[in-house]
Amino acid sequence: MRLYFAQSVIASLTICASLLCSACGSSQLDLEGKSPEQAADAIKGLDKKITEARLQPTVQGPSVVWITWLANSGPSPLLMEQTDIKTLLQSIALAKGNDNIGWVLLFLNETGVDQLGNKSPVLALKLGWNMETLKKVNWDGVQNWQLIDLASIEGVGPFGKNAIDAYCKDGASSYGKTFCTRAGWRG
């Protein structure tokens, strides 16, 4: 009886493991053979915080992925969003058919209030990652903050200074040294 029970448990675990593995394999982002619009739709489907995605082909070089991200409101949107940003970057870096992507640009927005009192997205930071670098990342070993340190700062919007201050206030001497220095944070 014990042998039968042990065999049943092992068989059940094997079935569960194979189902999990097949689900993991099918979740890989596949951009192969897709038009820029189809690729953008696939990227937009990666996270509900992505309000817009574009794959911008260029005349003289690789394409650029443009992603508009609406951060959760909070004191430090960069710190709060870095886990989801890591997942997004990993999906793009490991995607099938990503060979023609050269850069990933992320427009990190926060919810603000316009001149008429209506809530609307307002740019905090525009961050860029070189795709060659992202393809070299050890995704199992990299920390979220290390990916932020790899980002180039392509622009600072109206909420950007506050986002940088909140991120660097605690992290400038530890996790965010490179990013905070590049951002010109003086604390």
Rank of each mutant, 00 (worst) to 15 (best):
I148Q: 01
P158Q: 15
I148W: 02
E154K: 07
G128A: 09
G157Y: 05
W129K: 00
L147V: 07
M131C: 09
L147S: 02
Q146S: 10
A151R: 02
V137E: 06
E132S: 15
W145G: 05
M131L: 09
L150A: 05
A151Q: 04
A151W: 06
W145H: 12
K136F: 07
L134F: 04
E154G: 13
N144E: 14
N138W: 14
Q143I: 11
E154W: 00
N144P: 04
L127C: 02
V142S: 03
D149T: 02
K135H: 03
G155I: 09
S152F: 08
I148E: 00
L147M: 09
I148M: 00
Q146P: 00
P158N: 15
G155Q: 13
V137D: 07
Q146Y: 03
D149Y: 02
G155E: 12
W145S: 12
M131Q: 07
G157P: 01
W129S: 00
V142A: 04
W139S: 03
W139I: 07
M131W: 00
W139G: 01
I148P: 06
G141V: 11
K135S: 08
N144V: 04
T133C: 10
K126G: 09
N138A: 12
I148V: 10
T133S: 14
W129G: 00
G157L: 08
W129E: 01
G157I: 09
W139K: 06
L134V: 04
K136W: 11
N130Y: 10
W129H: 02
G141R: 14
N138Q: 10
S152L: 09
V142N: 02
G141K: 15
Q143S: 15
T133Y: 11
L147A: 07
M131R: 02
S152I: 08
M131A: 09
D140F: 11
S152H: 07
D149K: 04
M131S: 07
L147I: 09
K126F: 03
A151F: 07
N144W: 10
W145N: 11
G157N: 06
S152K: 05
G141S: 14
K136V: 08
P158D: 15
E132A: 15
T133R: 15
E154Y: 04
I148G: 04
A151N: 03
L127Q: 00
T133Q: 13
G155A: 13
I153F: 06
L127H: 00
G128E: 04
W139Y: 09
V137N: 07
Q143N: 15
L147Q: 01
W139V: 05
W139T: 04
I153D: 06
I148N: 01
